[in-house]
């Protein structure tokens, strides 16, 4: 027996740019709002509640942006590679656009992790930069993001650009566990993880400041990626009937 009614819930339903465009548009203000509120709370804890560190003094306060940026840089890469792989496997247009939309924000987070790390390294280690495993693998992550962006920009044919980018993104995933475990696998200047499944080695208020700032960075990243993917949808589907209809009705916002 065959049925003509569509299933009530189907993940592929959202994989159509036409249905995702308005959905993303409705979600963005919520993520912006959450990002702003969490940033305000996070900064308050980071500067008004968290105490001075016993060994590092006030320089440790860089942690409240350094760790969130570093976490997001790795997490966004995995999500980018996931969507790139989905695009490669199922040929869904939106998946590849998601990967393309994540790359600039991921590169931004990686740059911030390196920059804040350098400014933290100088007072604590006496050097802005050392060629150590953690720092070097994070720098490679930045090059992977920039390579992905440059490769996609260099290929005119969209489908080929998506495929080539996907292959690069998937191969590069190997670098993420290398970054994460580098402080265990090699002797490095960089300190080990302060937070693990077993618990945390930090003062409670410091930990809360860091976690709330990490959530704020997360919400910001989601908002930025959704905003960018909507622009990509418009760029790629500008000749589609649904885009013209929305534009004619003035409902493109």
């Amino acid at each position: 027996m065959t049925t003509t009614t569509a299933p009530r819930f189907n993940l592929f339903w959202f994989s159509s740019p036409q249905t995702f465009f308005p959905l993303a548009g409705r979600l963005i203000p919520w993520f912006i709002g959450l990002a702003v509120i969490l940033t305000l709370i996070g900064l308050y804890i980071s500067f008004a509640v968290a105490p001075t560190d016993a060994t590092q003094g006030e320089s440790y306060r860089i942690i409240f942006i350094h760790v969130p940026a570093a976490w997001m840089s790795m997490f966004l890469y995995v999500v980018m590679a996931f969507w790139a792989a989905m695009g490669l496997a199922f040929n869904t247009r939106l998946s590849s656009m998601m990967a393309t939309a994540i790359a600039p924000t991921g590169a931004l987070m990686t740059f911030l992790a390196l920059w804040t790390g350098a400014l933290w390294g100088r007072p604590t280690w006496g050097a802005y930069w050392v060629w150590d495993a953690r720092l070097t693998s994070e720098l490679i992550l930045l090059f992977l993001y920039l390579g992905f962006i440059a490769l996609q920009a260099a290929i005119d044919d969209r489908r080929r650009a998506d495929k080539a980018g996907a292959v690069l993104a998937i191969i590069g995933v190997i670098n993420v566990p290398i970054i994460y475990f580098s402080v265990k696998w090699w002797n490095t200047l960089h300190q080990g993880a302060s937070v693990s499944v077993k618990g945390s080695s930090m003062a409670t208020t410091m930990l809360w400041g860091m976690l709330i700032m990490a959530l704020a960075f997360w919400m910001y990243s989601i908002a930025a990626v959704l905003y960018r993917v909507r622009t990509l949808i418009l760029e790629r589907e500008k000749r589609a009937d649904w885009v013209r209809e929305l534009a004619a009705q003035g409902r493109l916002k």
Partner: peptide, 29 residues
């Protein structure tokens, strides 16, 4: 505590880079 340049240099870069991304997002849109 004498680390102002490092701490504020870090936070200022976050603000600057986020501002650039928001501007870039809007102009491309």
């Amino acid at each position: 505590g004498g680390y102002g340049l490092y701490v504020w240099g870090s936070y200022a870069m976050v603000v600057a880079v986020v501002a650039i991304e928001i501007w870039q997002l809007k102009s491309r849109r």
